[in-house]
Design a protein around this nucleic acid. Structure first.
Lengths: 346, 346
DNA sequence: CTGAAAGCGCTTACAG
DNA sequence: CTGAAAGCGCTTACAG
């Protein structure tokens, strides 16, 4: 930080009071036209840039928002972050990137830091079961919106604003698709079951299983914690078992890719020998040679909408009502489930 | 922002002056042990969190760093950002995510905003030829370090700290590898030639071409601007031409993936019919079925080291010398160039 | 319309 | 060792 020109310098140069300068620069009434013009001119000439930190201190508005995600190198979060940052920028906010790596303590630290920094609001996409931390935000009255995951505790869920995909439907549609293609032996690799999205997807899948009258052994359902590595291991074990599945539905694309590695290494062909599907629709899944069938998540849009809601709350330009948005889950049929080979069989 | 407990509240409760509270909380000498203990205890009990914005105003230290990149949804930048954020967090800094989408005006705006916010330093990975904006940073005396790209203007380059890969060597090694595998008709898809990395890679490739005595037609070298789409188009045209290349060396993996799409769509097999290589070593390239031969970029490490250098500069704990780090370019042989098929032929 | 003052939450000299 | 004051850069009442 350097000795930059301040409001005081300009006041001196313009032969005016600092209040006059402040008001001129902020388009407040109460300043004569000529004086105002002069002040603005000097400000421009000297390249004056207001100190956002001083402004934040007096206005209690930092124009800063915190973005809390698990891992920016994960394609899902990267797209989300892009939507957030683009939109924040459009509204005049800067975004502080906060990465928790799934660590609850790190997240808690970040909440403290963000509050200390006086952020105007927070976007959170890492909410898990134990998230009493959400209660802290409500207490502190700092606006926040949850993306992708929401609090499980009903009292918190009620108060939280959020925007998520219909994960239940996503879980349901995946099974339905595989069932229609003729599969009965479907394995499910779930996300981290301490999170709402993973739970909802699982519920949906189970409902679809029931609806279609499929019975699968318990061991066909494993918690993959949204990890590539973990899903790869799980799938490997499944394939080696005496009664392996003919389809695997991973509840996100990263895990589907992990499962894919296990399948390919075992010498099986996709979709000829085994079907594979994911959720999220990350870019990599669309690549030739991968062409993963999946359920679309509007990652960028969720980020963008999240900020919009947040800004509305911060600036209170909109009559207050807690917004809860659930986006449709859309099936994206590519080549890993065999639809192009033979179409639906039932 | 809410009425949180302040230093003043604590002073009142502890029956002390605000100065005493400040000094106690900051471990400054000049306070009696007992009083200090009492103050600290009250602070803890009330959950006092200092206002970082007030601190920033008086200390001229925000513990904020700006990260300027092109696109967070690009895997290269995402990994870089991860290294930056992780390391910044470790040193007690928060990072403001600034995405320019390659737009020079956006970048300029961000420089202004970051200065207004009083960031302590900036990490930039978007420097291009015209970047007189770097001069602005030097003028304002705000510490910065360039990652991946550096200023082309010698006077600026001299003053800038940076950490980059040896792009010349990367460009060289790629050609060398293809040449050893027996290729003479090698097409090169370059990055954005207004950036140092793209220029250096190209120089390296040309040098290798010369060294190995290969002569390629002008039209074999095209500027792909680091864009998947663009590279795909370029490659498509190349393949349709009367004398198509037998190898394409894209100067980043994104472009290599774009070229791959064109190749696959044209019905050719990789590496049987045509060789393909990239630079960067993004995760997607390692996936089964892709297995892109490439040159490794230490994305995370560059981000991490960049922050380390930046913090050293900010905190001046290290004797000042302008650090310029050039990392080795390491060839990563996977399956897209045919090495496993027949090894080197010359 | 205009200027001087108080204050945002903190820290740093500076007297006692 | 301790307290009162001045100041960081800005804005907002509040008198003239």
């Amino acid at each position: 930080m350097n000795k930059r020109v301040t409001i005081k310098d300009i006041a001196k140069m313009a032969n005016a009071s600092v209040a006059a300068v402040s008001m001129s620069l902020n388009n407040r009434p109460g300043i004569g036209d000529e004086k105002r013009r002069k002040i603005i001119e000097i400000a421009k000439k000297t390249g004056y840039q207001p100190s956002l930190v001083a402004k934040a201190l007096v206005n209690k508005r930092s124009y800063l928002i915190g973005l809390i995600i698990k891992d920016i190198s994960d394609h899902f979060f990267a797209e989300l972050a892009k939507g957030v940052e683009d939109t924040a920028k459009k509204y005049g906010y800067s975004t502080i990137l906060c990465t928790t790596d799934g660590n609850s303590k790190t997240q808690e630290d970040y909440f403290d830091i963000l509050c200390s920094r006086g952020v105007d609001g927070i976007i959170i996409s890492t909410v898990v079961a134990e998230d009493s931390q959400i209660a802290f935000l409500i207490d502190e009255k700092i606006p926040f919106v949850c993306i992708n995951r929401i609090p499980l505790i009903p009292s918190l869920k009620k108060k939280a604003e959020y925007i998520i995909m219909d994960n239940y439907s996503a879980g349901y549609k995946g099974i339905e698709h595989l069932w229609k293609l003729g599969h009965d032996k479907i394995a499910i690799i779930t996300g981290s079951l301490n999170a709402s999205n993973a739970r909802d997807s699982l519920k949906g899948s189970k409902a679809a299983l029931k609806k279609s009258g499929i019975k699968i052994p318990k061991r066909y359902i494993k918690e993959g914690t949204y990890s590539y590595r973990e899903a790869c291991l799980i799938c490997e074990r499944l394939l080696k078992s005496k009664n392996p599945p003919t389809a695997v539905f991973a509840h996100d694309d990263n895990m589907a890719l992990g499962a894919r590695e296990a399948i390919l290494r075992s010498g099986l062909a996709i979709p000829k020998d085994i079907a594979l599907m994911g959720i999220d629709n990350i870019k990599t899944g669309a690549l030739a040679g991968i062409e993963l069938t999946t359920i679309s998540q509007k990652k960028y849009e969720m980020g963008a909408m999240g900020v919009k809601i947040l800004v509305n709350r911060i600036e209170e330009r909109v009559p207050h009502m807690v917004e809860k948005i659930v986006l449709d889950a859309e099936l994206i049929i590519r080549n890993t489930c065999g639809y192009q080979m033979h179409g639906y069989r039932r």
